[in-house]
Nucleic acid binder design. Structure first.
Length: 1007
RNA sequence: UGGCUCGUAGCUCAGUGGUAGAGCACUACCUUGACACGGUAGGGGUCGCUGGUUCGAUCCCAGUCGAGCCAACCA
């Protein structure tokens, strides 16, 4: 416990009283520091191991080190912190383990960009080692920004256990995991078509590729069949020269037999090795097996093959096959044993295999190829087509399928385990409809490409043995002949690392595996003459997959690991279910034999007020910090201008902001933003962040503040007995609010346990405002000096603060600390943050009090209604008769007429039984069918208004009655509906009749 | 193309097999010693559309239209 806890935040002058307004900024900074200094966020491992405390563990999804707080972060912080704080208050050892992700591509790109801008250098100019030093420098300088922002949200994470996915501990886990998987035969090296991102120069996993529908064209051209006649020289403009020089090729005559293919990527024809048709397509059966003339590579063998995968309906029914540049073609190439001709460099420019088309960017190459084919008379028309283009999630560049050698993880076993884990309920997915998506993904998973051609990341712990290289090259030559690049290099005297480089890119993979060893030791450092480490790094998600246990010290068997694995829940956005959640389940099950969490809760996406995805480049991203602190319109506009919004969109974007936020964004405080996000996060629905709604919840927090001010002012320093001491002195109001409080407690608790954060928010909101403030506080105004009332009021406020604390930690702590008698009530509890979580006390649930209060409140509302509608001022003295034929109600009125008078501000209340009651001629009447409220109106009334009101009430009652009559008109209803429903209907009809009669009589009296 | 989610008051959203709810906005009155970021009362909905099951459907089922997400895909 520190002194700071006893020190009020700045600006507090009055002793005992609360300042008029809550200073969110000061309170947030103050309490966060105090909690952290007191070690509130750090759980007691020893207590867990000794069995004194149950663990409750959430692993925080590590935000990218390059990131700055966005609404998605704000949402996950809010939800995870609610869970963590609730369980902490329940006395569990709550561990919310935070950290930051090294985010391979993103971080490398950021640092490269800075390097370019400030020093005009590329990473290659620096070299790998120097460059990585720069990245680490950048991380040290900027990496804490996102962490500070999470803290500003109130995240009660255990920062003493904060991890970075690239720190030594995580690195050790990564190496260990890789090596074990390697030994178990789960990792292989393969030459595959990978998703190549030419902008960042690396391969990507399938999950990192997005599909965008775009307009394209289906371009048709002809391949001439070989052997149909003599070849003629034809020329086309040389793509290498713009001066009109021509290149020449030999082609069959124009009227020779041909086959027309359709493609969206004409430039890939430079790598064509076949044309495929459907085996049963009568148009082409005669051509199957024939050779075709490639216009630019006459020596290349291009054959017509038959394959059932061809769609006869699409295009011309004939497909050009480029195995090195299209996934489907790759598979077809495998089936038919076709060669693969790679025509692109790593930057997606044409390479030497493109012949005269070498050296063009892929899009320029497309133009040149098309021009050439047109000139040669092979063009056969074009048609528009909508098709999906694969785009890198990171860089936005169009993905180039590229033949490349990479390490893959076999996923079949993992997927089967993941299916079974969810199937048998070891891990629940919530909302549960995601299970179907999970199953579908696991059933259709392909092997996971874990290599990344980056520098920033965990370097693949594979080492190549230079002492074995000659032997392997020889083995390769035995298979393929001595004409291989490696053999040639050997003959030229190339040795060591350079020879290895050549071998790695040309030798068969299983031979490469013979000289490769996976090891957790730094073999290359130990013996650089013998060992060379793999250049590539691992996919970021590889280290993220180990997060639930690498953070706890795995592979060591640490106390943390024993105490805190597996965790309780993994909470994250549904968009990374596969990237991350799946991989954690795979690896957790594989290395520790158990799924890393009991529940997976997937929250929705945060969108803007119009329902659009928030994105900086769309200019519609709302910065959580602007909602917390507020921002004026000019600053908001200025800020938006710094976002990467396309030039031509900017004006419209700014206009939209002006329209949506004419006054800027009002400050909601961290608590306000948290409450708003929680209240809006219903299952199965995106969170559309509504600023007006946030303002509404800010008003709620203001209401709480002021209710507390009232209590502090009125209760002051006077002694407040414990609730238990005054149990036998409770008034109806006391018993009622305590009963309602138990229900609210149950509702909030249940909602949080069910991840229904919206329900939790609504339950506390509803209770505090509509019941505690609107009714109970009003009641206490007449009875604040009674010990039972003070005890009840404080108990209700105290309990409410504890219930609300997980949602709004700062303001509740600020208030809770100042509640009168806090030290006496909670002698051993220093903070609301660790105060006991409220549990419903069934002994305080009081059905009778609730029923009685319902009668009171009904009477009050009816009295107020007459008073308002008949134009009586709020202060006019009003005399009311309460009339009923119901004995219970009559008895209640006897007990509670003073309460009714208080709440409805009546000057006089009398009760009467229906029999023999004579209403005054000038009166306003309201009835619910059981109880009539008759307001004396002599000298006060606007008779016409009152008549109109009565008329309206009668019409409404009759309309309701008609609905019920219709139901009863159906004989089957009475026969088949449950008796209680029928009885209820009858009672309602009777009450409506009664109400109509009463109001009719009142109308009659008015003349 | 398949899977999933959503379509309820002007807006943002809850909800249930038994005559529809909240917040904001709206109307009227009220500056009452906690709070105008407030109080009181009130207006406002054929619960996307069409069928079916049922005594009864906003809720269950089928279809349909619309919005969105995910996965796949025809080159």
């Amino acid at each position: 416990m520190t002194d700071a806890a006893a020190t009020p935040p700045a600006g507090d002058a009055d002793e005992g009283a609360l300042p008029k307004a809550y200073d969110a900024r000061a309170a947030e900074a103050h309490w966060y520091r105090v909690w952290q200094d007191a070690g509130v966020f750090t759980p007691d491992v020893a207590a867990v191991q000794a069995g004194r405390q149950r663990p409750y563990v959430i692993m925080m999804p590590p935000p990218n080190v390059t990131g700055s707080l966005h609404m998605g972060h704000a949402l996950f912080v809010t939800l995870q912190d609610i869970l963590t704080r609730t369980h902490r208050m329940r006395g569990e050892a709550a561990l919310w383990l935070p950290g930051v992700d090294h985010a391979g591509i993103a971080t490398q790109t950021v640092v490269e960009r800075e390097l370019k801008r400030h020093e005009g250098k590329s990473r290659h100019d620096l070299g790998r080692e120097k460059f990585l030093e720069r990245v680490w420098e950048w991380k040290e300088k900027n990496g804490s920004r996102i962490v500070e922002q999470l803290k500003a949200m109130g995240a009660s994470a255990d920062w003493t256990r904060e991890r970075f996915t690239m720190d030594a501990q995580c690195n050790r886990a990564v190496k260990e995991a890789f090596v074990r998987m390697w030994r178990d035969g789960l990792i292989y090296r393969g030459e595959r078509l990978v998703n190549w991102d030419p902008a960042t120069g690396t391969g990507l996993s399938d999950e990192e590729v997005e599909h965008e529908e775009k307009d394209g064209e289906l371009w048709r051209f002809a391949y001439k069949v070989k052997g149909g006649g003599p070849l003629n020289a034809k020329s086309f403009p040389s793509p290498q020269h713009d001066d009109g020089r021509a290149a020449t090729v030999m082609l069959p005559a124009d009227d020779a037999l041909e086959i027309v293919v359709a493609t969206t990527r004409p430039e890939t024809m430079l790598g064509d090795v076949a044309v495929a048709v459907h085996p049963e397509d009568p148009r082409y059966t005669a051509l199957v097996g024939r050779e075709l003339v490639h216009p630019f590579f006459p020596e290349r063998k291009v054959v017509v093959i038959a394959d059932a995968a061809v769609d006869r309906e699409f295009g011309t029914g004939a497909v050009k096959i480029t195995p090195a540049h299209d996934p489907n073609d790759f598979e077809m190439g495998q089936r038919h044993g076709l060669p693969m001709i790679n025509i692109f460099t790593l930057h997606a420019a044409t390479n030497e295999n493109a012949g005269v088309f070498e050296g063009f960017d892929r899009f320029l190459a497309r133009k040149r190829v098309k021009a050439a084919l047109e000139e040669l008379g092979l063009f056969r028309g074009t048609s528009p087509i909508k098709h999906n283009v694969s785009v890198s999630q990171r860089s936005g560049a169009v993905i180039e399928p590229l033949l490349s050698r990479q390490f893959f993880v076999k996923t079949k076993r993992f997927a089967e385990q993941a299916l079974s884990i969810v199937e048998r309920g070891e891990t629940r997915i919530i909302p549960e409809w995601w299970k179907k998506t999970w199953d579908h993904f696991m059933h259709n998973i392909r092997d996971w490409n874990v290599s990344r051609q980056l520098w920033w990341g965990h370097r693949v712990p594979v080492f190549y043995d230079l002492t074995k290289i000659d032997e392997v090259i020889e083995a390769d030559a035995n298979r393929k002949g001595t004409n291989t690049a490696a053999v040639k290099a050997q003959a030229d005297g190339v040795r060591g690392r350079e020879l290895l480089r050549i071998a790695l890119s040309t030798l068969d993979d299983e031979l490469v595996m013979k000289l490769a060893v996976a090891s957790t030791d730094e073999l290359e450092q130990q013996d650089p003459e013998r060992w060379v480490q793999e250049e590539d790094v691992l996919d970021t998600w590889f280290s993220s997959g180990l997060w639930p246990f690498s953070t706890l010290g795995w592979p060591e068997s640490t106390h943390d690991l024993k105490a805190f694995y597996p965790g309780a829940v993994l909470e994250t956005g549904s968009d990374i279910l596969f990237f991350w959640v799946a991989r954690m389940v795979w690896m957790g099950a594989y290395f520790l034999g158990r799924s890393p969490f009991a529940d997976v809760f997937l929250h929705a996406m945060v969108r803007d007020g119009a329902g659009k995805k928030m994105s900086k480049s769309e200019g519609n991203a709302v910065d959580p910090l602007d909602v917390i602190h507020g921002i004026a319109l000019p600053e908001l506009l200025a800020k938006t201008k710094t976002y990467p919004v396309p030039e031509k969109k900017l004006a419209a974007v700014l206009k939209a902001i002006e329209k949506e936020f004419p006054e800027g964004i009002p400050a909601a405080g961290a608590d306000g933003l948290r409450f708003t996000l929680a209240a809006l996060s219903a299952h199965g629905r995106d969170v559309k962040l509504s600023i007006p709604r946030a303002a509404g919840y800010k008003a709620f927090l203001n209401k709480i503040w002021n209710a507390t001010r009232f209590v502090l002012m009125r209760v002051g320093d006077a002694p407040v007995p414990a609730l238990a001491e005054v149990r036998d002195q409770l008034s109806l109001g006391d018993r009622w609010i305590l009963s309602r409080l138990q229900r609210a407690t149950r509702a909030v608790s249940d909602a949080i346990d069910a991840y229904r954060f919206d329900e939790a928010a609504n339950a506390i909101y509803q209770f505090f405002w509509s019941e505690l403030c609107d009714v109970y506080v009003e009641i206490t105004k007449g009875a604040i000096d009674k010990p039972a009332t003070r005890a009840t009021l404080l108990h209700a406020l105290d309990t409410s603060m504890r219930l609300l604390h997980p949602l709004c930690p700062f303001q509740t702590e600020e208030i809770w600390q100042k509640l009168p008698g806090r030290d006496a009530r909670w002698p051993s509890t220093k903070f609301c943050a660790v105060a006991p979580w409220p549990t419903p006390d069934l002994a305080l649930v009081d059905e009778n009090a609730e029923r009685e209060m319902a009668v009171v409140l009904d009477a009050v509302t009816m009295a107020r209604n007459v008073r308002q509608e008949s134009g009586l001022g709020p202060r006019a003295p009003v005399k009311v008769d309460l009339v009923t034929q119901d004995q219970d109600v009559f008895a209640i009125l006897g007990r509670q007429s003073a309460l009714i008078a208080l709440l409805a501000a009546l000057s006089e209340v009398n009760r009467a039984t229906s029999a023999g009651y004579q209403a005054p001629r000038l009166s306003g009447t309201q009835s619910n069918g059981v109880l009539d409220v008759v307001v004396h109106l002599e000298g006060l009334i606007d008779v016409d208004k009152e008549k109109a009101r009565l008329q309206r009430e009668i019409e409404r009652a009759q309309k309701d009655k008609a609905g019920l009559e219709k139901r009863f008109a159906n004989e089957d209803f009475v026969k088949k509906a449950p008796p209680e429903v029928v009885a209820e209907g009858r009672a309602t009809m009777a009450a409506l009749d009664e109400k109509t009669a009463r109001l009719g009589a009142a109308l009659g009296r008015l003349g």
